[in-house]
Each structure stands twice: as structure tokens, then as C-alpha cells.
Simulated assay, not measured.
Amino acid sequence: MTPTLWRLLAGRTFAAFATALIPTTLTLALLRTGSAGDLGLVLAAEMVPMLLLLPVAGVVADRFPARRVVLAADLVRAAAQLGTGALLLSGPVRIPELAALSALTGAGVAFGTPSARTLVAAVATGPGRLRVNSRLMVAQGLATVAGPAAAGALALSVGAGWASLLTGALFAVSALTLGGLRVPAPRATGPRPGFGAELRGGWAQTRRHPWFLANVMAHGVWHLAAGLLLTLGPVIAVESLGGEGAWVVVAQAGTAGLLVGAWAAGRLPVRRPLVWVAVASAAFALSLAALGLRLPVPVSAAAYFLGMGGVGLMSPLWETEIQRRVPAGALGRVGSFDTLISFAARPLGLVAAAPLAALTGTAVPLLAAAVLVAVANLAVLLVADVRAHPEREPSYALR
């Protein structure tokens, strides 16, 4: 890779690791208050701005240079985490101030996510883009695994406040790394319409891509199912598979599968990427079915490895296809709808899992979700644009 691509990879890795530190740090900091409601409030304060601001952030990503937006978003998150660290170190936890800083972090995530996608598309061009997205996914997966462990070690050894200060510093390093990227200037397209018109135009552009809408809806189903699995899987492991150690084995197998799938995405001879995306996404049903049926730990671990391997394989392929098929001037707005569905669906699954299990038991929701994931993602193959060879796909001009 070129120095520019290495810089991109480093910056996104710093940001991903910092992001992975936050939930565990907040959880350990708020455990001392003894109130699950306080933790829920602070975490919700981050989620709500993300959901509300993403469509606006998509417009911003298309109107302004991606490098500058990502720089600003990382600096906002750095300031929020440095403020959180100072607040935690100053004395007793004050929930209103902590929630406000969490909301600021959520706003930074909302504005940074669409622009990061456009930044990758601008820097990584040509046939090598899939390999770049593959490496970014591997780095993100490693950060997701290492982040909670590092946050826990820091919070328990030196305190949650210092862990938040480190998180803020990592976001600042990401901002400096990505802010210095040399990105080709976009071609001038004449006067731009108003902000509201661009917001509406983003949805209009999204509706012009049937392959995109079909996949986004299907991905929403598996994000919802993932929320169910993350809540009910540990319960099933403890009750029926031998205890907490069984869940650790299954979860680690899933992590390994995710990393292997992401690594393989840039190396397999993929001719029809969206067909691979649909089949790989449907493979997540294996994880749900194995745990729903309470299959032995080795079988459940293998199923979770394959299911998460499909997710790891799918993600770089999907990112590359969005960046290739969607016009550059609409990528932020179109991509923001994909992120919005992802951010909203998984928490919904987390919230719905316990009430569903109380009504039907833990197995039924997972087995039903397995069927829905398989059907929703394989049904995407019915869309002609999904099956089309990339060289013969229709051309989408930006309007």
C-alpha cells in the first residue's frame, strides 16, 4: 500500500479502537452509582443523536471535503472524551453532564461515519479498493475485540477517568492522522441546491438503487437478529451448554470467524460481489439456529464461526460495492441510510430479546430470527441488479 493508504488505515484503526473503549469505560464508571437506569440514560444519550443526525450528516459528507469533516468529527469526540475523563476524575459521577458529553460523542459519530466512507472512496481507488476495505474491516474487528479488554484493564487499574482521557487522546491522534491525508479535490459540479433539497435528493437517489434498498432491509434483519443473539446466546449457554465458559468459547469462535472472513474478502476471486454479499449474510442464520436448538458447544462454536465469517466476508464487499456503484456526489447521503438502519436495528433486537424470551422461551426468537435472516438475505438474489455482472450493471448518473 502507498503511504497515504497506510495513513488512512492507521487513522481509522485509532478511531475504531477509541470507539471500542467507550462502552466498557462508561459501564465500569457507572457501576459505582448502583443504578442501571443511569447507565441506560448515558448510553441512550449517545444513541439518540446518532440516529437523528445521520441523514443530516450524509448531506454534510456530500457538501464538504470528507477529510475536513472526519477531522472535525474526531476532534469533537476527542473533546467529549477528554471532558468525560475530567468529569470522572473530579469527584462523584454527575449524570446530566455525563449524558451531555455522551450526546456530543454521538453527534461526532453521526457526522464522522458517512464522511469516513466517502474519504475511503476518495483515497482508495481502482481494483485495490476491496483489499483496503478488507484491511480496514480486519483492523476494526481487532479493535472491537481488544477495546473492551483494554478499557476494563485501564478502568480497574488506574480508573475510568484515565481510560476516558486515553480515549480522547486516541481520537485526537486519529484526527491528526486523517486530517493530514492528501485527497484529490472533487470536480466542480456548479451551484449546489439548498440543504433541504439535497436531503430530499439523497432519499430520491437512494430509491434509484433497488440493489441497495433490498440489501439494506436484509441487513437490518440480521442486525436485529444479532441483537437477539447477543442477549439470549449467553443465557442459553449458561442454562443448557455448560455455563459461562461455553459462551466464551462460542463468542471467541465468532470473533475468529469475523477476522478470517474479513481477511479473505480481499483475496477471493469474487465476480458478482452482491451475490456473495447475500449468501454470506444469510450464513448468519447458522449461528442463530445452532444456539436456538442448543446444539453441543463444538457445533455451536463452528456455526458461529461460519456465521460471523459470513459477516466478515460481507462487510468489505458491501462497502466496496456502495463506493463503486453510488455516484461520488451522493455517497454520503445514500450511505447514511445504510448506517441508520444498522444503528437502529441492533439496539431494537437487544431491547426486544428479553420480552420475547419471557413470552416464548429463549429458543423460539432465535429460531424465528434464523428463518428471517436466511429468507430476507437470499431473497435479495431476486433483484436483477444484484445478479448482474459488474461489467454489465446499469449506470447510475447523479441527478
Rank of each mutant, 00 (worst) to 15 (best):
L166V: 14
S164R: 05
A155H: 06
T167E: 14
A160T: 13
T167A: 10
A143L: 01
R187N: 05
R182F: 02
A149S: 14
V173T: 15
A150S: 14
V145G: 01
A163Q: 12
G179I: 01
L178W: 01
L170Q: 11
S174N: 07
S157W: 12
A151R: 07
G141P: 05
G152F: 11
G161V: 09
S174E: 04
G159D: 09
A149M: 15
A150V: 13
A143V: 01
A172V: 09
P184G: 01
S174T: 07
F171P: 01
T189L: 06
L154V: 11
P184N: 06
T167F: 05
G180W: 02
R192Y: 00
L154E: 07
A160D: 11
T177Q: 12
A169G: 15
G190H: 02
V158P: 04
G194S: 08
A188E: 15
F195G: 08
A175T: 04
S164E: 12
G180F: 03
A146M: 08
F195H: 05
V183K: 09
R192S: 06
R182N: 11
R187K: 10
L142Y: 06
A153W: 13
P148Y: 02
S157Q: 10
L156P: 01
T144W: 13
A172C: 13
Q140Y: 08
A169L: 15
Q140P: 00
L176W: 14
P193A: 13
G161P: 08
V138F: 01
L178P: 06
G159L: 09
L154I: 09
L142F: 12
A151L: 09
R192T: 08
R187C: 04
P193Q: 04
G152E: 14
L181C: 10
A146H: 01
G194C: 03
V145A: 13
G152H: 09
L166E: 02
R182P: 08
A155E: 13
A151W: 05
R187S: 14
T167V: 08
F171E: 09
L178A: 05
L178G: 00
G141A: 08
Q140T: 14
T189W: 00
G179W: 01
G147P: 01
P191S: 04
L170G: 01
A146N: 02
Q140V: 09
A172L: 15
S157R: 13
G152K: 11
L170N: 10
G147T: 00
P191A: 13
A175Y: 07
R192G: 00
A169M: 12
V145E: 00
A188K: 06
L181E: 12
R187A: 15
A153T: 11
L156R: 09
V145H: 03
L176P: 12
A163P: 03
P148N: 13
